[in-house]
Write a protein that binds this DNA or RNA. Structure first.
Lengths: 234, 234, 234, 234
DNA sequence: GATGAATGAGATTTCATTCAT
DNA sequence: AATGAATGAAATCTCATTCAT
């Protein structure tokens, strides 16, 4: 089978799996059902994806790829904009991505929970065999830091064009933004959509607030100064 | 068996389960292993906890109870402090709690992911039967909003004592703080501990920054004004 | 479960398997069907016998044990008879055993085909993994030579009591008898029963002839002399 | 493709299959491996032989054809010899054939085990579909009795030329000889070769003894008389 | 006729969970 | 309440066999 054809088939399967996982969750999803949703047999399914976990990681990989693509196209759209605008747009892109794709956002969060700092040689006892053998687990490691790095680079660009405060640490700020996004997404996912209110709060307001906050932290000298002087006392 | 005795045994089991889940994760943990870690047989284990998920929810319940206790004792410690200090202390309490208890923080995040707004009558298709039948699932629903409510009340107290800006919405701010905490915790858990740096960032700095930020957002008029005027442009 | 109980259950399973194998043959027999014939589930079946081949070898072991028992009781019946009579009775016992138990005789023949001289360290490439791991494969090796040895010993007894010619080699004669038995059994099994004639030959006549021949070879000096003088010319 | 070309290819495949079956046995042999041993693909293999069993029966057919050819050439060599010599030569031919071709002898024995008296209308439940549909299964039925018949005819010739006792039944004796051969072969195959001793017996001695015995049974009046008078007592 | 992909049947395994004693 | 055995659901694997191109 030509690569392209094989790839199409893989895509079909992944999409079928996404529908099933989205509908009933990982645990309840049966390989049999995923296969029949994809219009193939279980064995064929296994010939493409060697385990249920591998299939889940394939979806995770797709999620991250999709996110990365959105990042790149966002960067492209903002290549002439100021750095700070681009950074905010990236954060907004991530948030929107999570709003639009419950499954994707969950897979990404699951993934980041799982890796537990792959940089260091930590104990892998929590990884299942299937995960360790998954080709997608490897592939994910190659691109997992991409959104992070792209954001950090954009912050630097902002510092160069003067739109972002020069005394902030790009890495730190990226991590800070990352934690905003995850926090927002988790709250969002615990809710269902940003249309339905959680405790009477419209989650869209939460998003907007986070974005404003991010912008201020990146570029507002007054805010920066004030923060500098906050006394923690803890 | 007297209640107390039974309760002691339940505790032993839960603690054994915590050790096992902590070591190998939920998926890899076997009921058999948990039973033998607790020094009992599988069937006895089942007589106490009717399913693996129920056991996990029992731990989750314990996690939330523990968190709530820490909240209460934090409130007690700060009953004479200003509202804003108390709120910041609560946030710090939650963060520290997550730092100290990887398993507890994961169970809580899992739980909040799972409930997906129990307030509204959403589809429960992703809940397993075991979860629906779990007594701890019910018990959790009774206390799940407690930390949230306590925080909101403390913000109101802060507004009354003048330490917190009067024009902020306590519910909104609580949710905002909640998302900070979750974001921080997820980043933390993806790392391992706040001692080891992630991308060269000391996570303790991230924590301190978040706390400062929270304090500023609650009480700093200048920051509030600046934020008010941020133009999003997104 | 007490040993006895476990043993009873194992027996039930083996008997169920015998019925199924007898009815449809090894290849066509499904573990599922054997399980349900035994009134248990597949998994339980597997907990007793780890593979289909192991189950088959268990039947083989039973076949050999049964044969051995018949040998012992035959020896007991003939303990006061002359050696030659005992030897002929043993051969007749084996033949009858094969007549009565098509499955058993096939399993034994399969087994002896398979072992290919376990005495020497031959290549085991034809053995499946399941066979190599079978406990019954090991157990069979312990008793596989028993009927052979018992026969040889009985020939010696016959030589001592004068009922068997002193110049024959017990081992050689045993092997010779063995090949008679196998030859008869194979012809028999290719037929179905010794009641239905094969090429118009009543197989019972073949059996009687073989027994007569064996007796003559063991004890008839005239025949021995004649054979001695046969010129092969081949 | 011309018939001859097709036939050559078929031969190649059969020979490849023989190598594989010989090396690892029927059960362990994979069609994939046979195909690649033959330098073709699995599908091509299937276009020539419709099933694994059919392929095995093709080998069986070849075995029987080869045996038959050897019988004919043996007959030819002995067309001027006395009947008894010819019969003994036939038996020796069969035995040597089995010595030389482990796989062939096994296929033949498997085949004769399988047919279970095709003369009568027995239940075919143990035959697989693949066997029933095999063209070689049909072809085998046409020639399966040939060695048997040729032997019987040769015995008759011996009776006519006076070299074989007139009062024996050719069919019965042929069957008797057949069972000798099978018995010898099975013992042989359980051993490996007639060079290596089984229980210290040189299998070549067993062969020679069987041949002598056959000759005596066919032509020696003294032996016949003695046998006549053997008392079975069983 | 050749090829790579797919199918179908059934063996085997793993566990959470339940039963019987 | 404790124990060993059994169950049921689903994952996974192995191959002979078939399909589509």
């Amino acid at each position: 089978m030509k690569e392209s054809k094989k790839s199409i088939k893989e895509n079909n399967i992944i999409e079928a799996a996404e529908r099933v996982f989205d509908a009933v969750g990982f645990k309840n999803a049966k390989m049999e059902d995923i296969a029949s949703e994809a219009g193939i047999t279980k064995v064929t399914l296994y010939s493409y994806f060697q385990s249920k976990e591998n299939l889940y990681l394939a979806i995770t990989y797709r999620a991250l790829q999709t996110l990365n693509e959105r990042y790149y196209s966002c960067l492209d759209r903002n290549k002439n904009a100021k750095g700070v605008d681009s950074v905010i747009a990236l954060i907004e892109t991530f948030m929107s991505f999570c709003e639009d794709n419950f499954l994707y956002s969950e897979t990404l969060l699951d993934y980041f929970s799982m890796v537990r700092s792959t940089s260091s040689g930590q104990d892998k006892s929590k990884l299942t065999e299937a995960t360790k053998e998954s080709i997608y687990y490897l592939k994910l490691q190659d691109i997992q830091n991409l959104p992070f790095k792209l954001t950090a680079k954009e912050i630097q660009r902002g510092q160069e064009d003067g739109s972002i405060l020069s005394n902030i640490d790009p890495i730190f700020s990226t991590l800070q933004g990352w934690s905003f996004i995850i926090g927002y997404t988790k709250v969002l996912n615990a809710n269902g959509s940003n249309q339905s209110p959680l405790f009477n709060v419209n989650l869209n307001d939460l998003k907007r607030f986070n974005l404003k906050l991010a912008r201020a932290l990146l570029s507002n000298e007054v805010v920066a100064n004030e923060l500098e002087n906050v006394d923690l006392l803890v």
